[in-house]
Amino acid sequence: MTTAFNIVVCGSLVPDPLQTLEPIQGPTGPALKNEMMLPSVLDPWAGHALFEAANLAKHHPGTKVYLVSLGPKAKLQQLMMTIAQKVPFEFVCLDGPASGFLDSREVAKALASAIEKIPGLDKTKLLVFGGYSSASRDAGTTMQMIAEQLGISDVFLGADELKVQPDGSFRIMERIEGGQYQISSCAGAPIVIGWATGNLPEPPNNPQVGMANMRTIMPALQKAQPAALKTDGIQYASVQLPQQQRQTKIVKDTPVEEIAKEIVAWIRS
């Protein structure tokens, strides 16, 4: 049985992880130093969700993929120069902040509202994808709240695989503790999935795909409305980067056994 889906992927930008991220107190709350100036990438978890969506679309003709992004539209435009080349999709843009310090409830509300407004969206075929986690700040709550707002009760988090069964039902593998998977069956759409990493490699950039996508991306950016996000629902007592100690040393041609021994010794110490 071949099923065509309407897949909506929620995802936005985060600062390139190689950049120096330094929390500061901005006029409206916590922020990252020079955040607007830092180069951005698509949040890696959202990226996995997008690639899974495109892969599903490839195998289910007639499927439509939408990418709904909340972020500063000028930065989203820059991001699209890369992301639009990866896979075909239609773009829905919400002009607003993409800061990791936003209230996830407000973000979910804005995204759910934008999904509701997608013209011709068939909710009986709706698959809402997003990242289970985020590279900017990991509250891990946004996707559930989107599901709630859209009235979708089948929600799967930390998924690495979705298989459409011959009868049209879904088989979903979710990560659980101890490196194990929980395998669930679901009768079908609508569902919400918060993706972990999935199993697909990142597609190479292809400007030809990008040129096709740009036909919808530029109008979407031009007509993007400011997203009304309340900021008074959450207060931060303090913010700091996760404590980490990076001890990098560059060695070449070291046997694997030697490396393993060194790691074991470090763990034991």
């Binding site: 120069m81 190479p204 950039n205 400007p207 990008g210």
Partner: peptide, 14 residues
């Protein structure tokens, strides 16, 4: 020139 920007990104990734 969006097509130029895309070529830049595609080339950069390679």
């Amino acid at each position: 020139r969006y097509e130029h920007q895309m070529v830049v990104q595609a080339t950069r990734s390679v």
